[in-house]
Structures are given as C-alpha cells and as structure tokens.
Design a protein around this nucleic acid. Structure first.
Lengths: 252, 252
DNA sequence: AGAATAGTGTCTTTGAGACAATATAGT
DNA sequence: ACTATATTGTCTCAAAGACACTATTCT
C-alpha cells in the first residue's frame, strides 16, 4: 500500500481539501408554465452568468438537507410560516468532476424542490439578480458550471417522481381541484391527458387525494361546473402508479 | 449580507474545508444469498469495526464515478478484463451530517454496485480484512460511521431498481436461464415468485432478455428439463415494469 | 346562445396472477 | 420410480385508455 494512502487513512487533512456546495433546482408553476429559479452570479467565476441558486455548506454546522433548506429560503424569501413547510425538497445527486469550478476542487450536492406558486424572487447573498424562468427557456441557456446538466437531471427526476408519488400536489395550494392537478401533470410531462380518465384514476388511487367536501367558489374562466376541492391524502407512493403516456421510444 | 458570506463567495477557501470520501454498497449473490462486501477498519476512527469499502476522493484527479470504480476495483480485486466491465455502478446518495466523522467535516458520496458472483474478497489499502457478508446479517451489525443507514438505503434502492430496469441481469453471468433470473428477484425481494407467470412476463417485456438459441448443459441439481439460455437485451427500462408483490402496507 | 369544463358511464384491450397440465432430467 | 423444474395454456380480475354523455357555468 502506498505511503500516502496509509497516512491519509489516519489523517484526512493529508489530502487536498474540497469545498462542498449546494445547488437547488427549484421548480414551480406560474400561469400554467413550469418555471425554474435562476440567479445571476455577482462574482467570479462565471460572473454575470445565470446559475442555479446555491452556496457553500457550513462545515460542522448543518446537515446537507438543512443547508439546502437554508439556501432555498434565502433565495425565495420564504420562511417556515409562509409556505416553506409545504415545499418538497429532496436530494438529487452529487457532481464533482475535476475542473467544474476553476477556483478549487468543489463538490456540489444538488437538490430538487417542488414549490407552489411563489412570489417574485429576490436576489439574496451573492446573487446580482434572481428570476423565475420557464424551463423550456432555461434548458436552452448557457448556465454556469455544470448547472445545465443538473437542471436536465432535475427535470427528468421531476417527471419520473410524479409518476409514482403524490408529489404533484406539492405544486398546488393546500386545496385544489382535479383539473388543477391534471394541469400539473400536463405541464411537467409536456403532454395532454384525457380529463375523464385522469379524474377517475386520481380518485381511485388510495390516499392520493381526499375530499374536503367543499366546492370551488368559481368555475374556470371559460365556464363549466364548479369543481370539488381536494387536499393531498396520506399516501407516500401511488399504487398503482400514474405512468407517462407512451415512453416506448425512450426505453432503449 | 454577513461579511463571511460575501468573502466566501469570492474565496471558497474562506470556509472550513471538507474531505470527500466514496463508500460503495457492493451487492452480489453467493449460493442463493444476497451478500454485501464489508471491510474491517485498520485505523481510527472505528478501528476494528466493519464498514463499507471506500476511501478518499483524489481532488482534481478523478471524477466521482471514477473514484467509485477505483475503490471497487481495489477492494474486489477485479480489473477491467476480469468482469469489472460487467458490474453496474450508480450513485446512491450523499451523506454529510456534521459529526459523522469525528476527525473533521467529511462528506461521503455513496455508490451502489451490482456484481455477478465474485471471487473471495481481499483486504486492500487501509483495510485489515474484507469479506462477503449476507445482508440479513450485515443489517443487524454495528457498522462504522453512518454505514448502517447507507446500507439500508442501498438495499431499498436495489429492490426498487430491479422493478423498472433490467439490472437484475447484472447479478448473473453473461448467459443465464430464466430460473436463475427469477432467483435474483426472489433473493433481492425476499419473496417467492410464481415460476410460470414470471417466465412469461420476462419473455414478454421487450428488450429484457434475448435468446442465445442454446440450452444449458445440465439441468438443476434436483432434476427437470434443461433450461434455455438468454443474455441481457438492449432495454434500459422495463416496460411494463415488474413490480414487487403487494406493497400496499408500505405505501402509507 | 355558445363554448368549455366537471364528472360519470361504457366498452375494449392489456397485463397480473391463480391454477393446471405436460414434458424432461436429476437422484 | 420419484421428484423437482421448465415451459405453455387457460381463466379471472384489475387497470388503462378510447369514446360518449350530461349537467353546469362562464363569456
């Protein structure tokens, strides 16, 4: 065994250190369009470029989940009372290719968040600007670091996650109609769903939604009966799942 | 904005550094039992305790995936020619709770590997011993750091992954019978499957397996006809998926 | 009035799972 | 001979998806 290995196993400081950062793919629906939160970088590297919100993990002071929640709160301006508790936040993956940050070795732990419609973003800490960006637009942009790949991974995770979990409800307010829930699926998947079949399916999956007994005050802007209101049920997994239409193509 | 934040955004070195390690949950089937590779730690902390194989990432010199492959090769004694190419390796998650390593702030990127039956393990680099351990036994052991949780997460990922991907074949040699494939599912899920229905299902999923045209030289030790041989097909996802029997319980 | 939507009913096809049957090869 | 296994066949039920229909409420 090489000497360095032997030493390092007793002294991790013998290895060149890493910085550990958090980057968050925050998704929300605004006016029927899926948006991602982007910030404009104030400092080098990539000064002036758009990037995912994030920052350094405070060593020894917080868990990775806590760091992600902190970054999310800083950039969205939310706090515990004002809806942050209803945001879904999960770890997406970790990115550490050498050279991804020109300053030093940096490992970034990416998180994925689903949020209900949030107020306009405001730039926090080291960002020069922050704004909600339609994902179709963001996917075509040049982003800082390897954030383009992280965004792509986050979107694929989101599309897959709502298939077998009830997390599509995390994009909606506490009470919602089946039509609003269907709009979430249609927007995230980019596909039209059959209203009648979707309705029956959602109500048939145990624990997906539960009725509030109430009815919406108004119908949609283009008419129709007033829809019944539901809230998220107690299921953590959808069984049976709600699968994306026809993925035969992407299977090979 | 606090001064430290401002400085750190331009100088990541201003934050206390992390060490970044890799830990690998390597799963294999040995004599019909699911085994995980464990190593006995030579040095502090947790000297003498069993742990997942792993080590420090070499900053600036390798990607995380490369580091994981390197650790895997070191501990299993495999090289590219001898089957390492057939091992499935994927990122599992990242663990960075403060205090998980008493020496300093350490973030561990965990990987999950599916391997065909491998030769006996031999201790590499900083390990005092290495051995394949039945997972039922490993789950009950005290493991170093937070490796018990990482192992649990890896097992759940494995059980879930073979539902919708053809990766169960990664536990088998290049050519296998449907019965051997069924044994993988039964072992990983810990449930008996109906032989007839499983057989038809596997052959009906496009791209899951493809026939070699050949037949096994011998039948099983307890008789029966010689089974046909198959190899892994070109599908990356199983459609429709092969779901675990009855998870109604774990759904809430 | 006209158009769009919520919710329900019906029918067809696919797939999951229970069960049975037959042929084969090991001990 | 006896037993376990491979493979195929049949039947039932659940679920997905196509399509149709009614009632409701908006502009």
């Amino acid at each position: 065994m090489p000497d360095e290995d032997y030493l390092a196993s007793y002294d991790p400081g013998a290895y060149p250190p890493f910085a550990v950062t958090i980057d968050v793919v925050v998704l929300t629906l605004r006016e029927g369009v899926l948006n991602v939160l982007l910030v404009r970088r104030g400092g080098e590297p990539f000064a002036g470029a758009w990037a995912l919100p994030g920052g350094f993990v405070q060593a020894g002071a917080e868990t990775l989940d806590e760091a992600a929640a902190r970054e999310l709160a800083e950039e969205t301006g939310l706090d515990e009372e004002r809806g942050l508790g209803r945001v879904h936040l999960e770890q997406l993956g970790t990115y550490g290719d050498p050279g991804r940050d020109p300053r030093m070795a940096v490992v970034s732990v990416a998180y994925l968040a689903f949020a209900p419609d949030l107020p306009e973003a405001h730039a926090g800490s080291d960002a020069a600007d922050a704004r909600w960006t339609p994902v179709a637009e963001a996917e075509g942009m040049e982003l800082a670091f390897d954030h383009r790949r992280i965004l792509a991974d986050g979107l694929e995770r989101a599309r897959s996650k709502i298939e077998y979990t009830p997390l599509a409800t995390a994009f909606l307010s506490k009470e919602f109609t089946v039509g609003e829930l269907r709009a979430v699926y249609e927007t995230v998947w980019g596909a039209e769903l059959h209203a009648g079949n979707f309705h029956r399916k959602v109500l048939s999956v145990p624990g997906f939604v539960e009725s509030t007994g109430a009815t919406a005050d108004r119908a949609g802007s283009r008419g129709g009966p007033r829809a019944r209101l539901y809230r998220a049920g107690d299921a953590r997994l959808l069984h049976p799942a709600l699968l994306r239409p026809d993925r035969e193509d992407s299977v090979r």
